[in-house]
């Protein structure tokens, strides 16, 4: 079995940030599809999309937790060798939490905002 948390100290930060961003994006898709399915419980296309996205999310989350540390409260919180990583790693509001990955589109707001009356 793979050793838990190979890179807990952030030796592969770029991969970690990109993986976390990917997890965020897929989570968003799973969440939105969940809401749609609540109102349309028999929609076959939505169900197929949900299954695909959920499988991808579980795979990516498993990969992240093995390599970098716990993400879910019921995931792998730590080990006898590594200690309880859940409280040893930064919380998501802290500035040392892994920052966004290499996604240039995130440098701008997704839609042009009304900037009238603001200083450039």
């Amino acid at each position: 079995m793979k050793r838990f948390c190979d890179n807990c100290n952030g030796t592969d930060n770029r991969h970690r940030r990109n993986l976390l961003d990917r997890i965020s994006a897929i989570s968003f898709a799973v969440g939105e599809t969940t809401l749609y399915l609540d109102g349309h419980p028999n929609h076959r296309m939505a169900l197929a999309y949900y299954t695909k996205m959920k499988n991808e999310l579980d795979a990516l989350t498993g990969e992240y937790e093995m390599k970098y540390g716990p993400l879910s409260g019921l995931g792998i919180g730590g080990s006898e060798q590594q200690g309880w990583q859940w409280v040893k790693q930064p919380w998501p509001w802290e500035l040392n939490y892994p920052e966004g990955g290499d996604h240039p589109e995130l440098n701008d707001p997704p839609v042009k905002l009304d900037t009238r009356g603001e200083e450039e």
């Binding site: 976390l20 961003d21 997890i23 965020s24 989570s27 968003f28 716990p70 993400l71 879910s72 409260g73 019921l74 859940w86 790693q89 919380w91 998501p92 509001w93 500035l95 939490y97 920052e99 966004g100």
Partner: peptide
């Protein structure tokens, strides 16, 4: 509820 240790959208001011 189960906590997920990430924000729904990342924030770094």
């Amino acid at each position: 509820w189960i906590y997920e240790k990430k924000l729904q959208y990342p924030i770094h001011i």
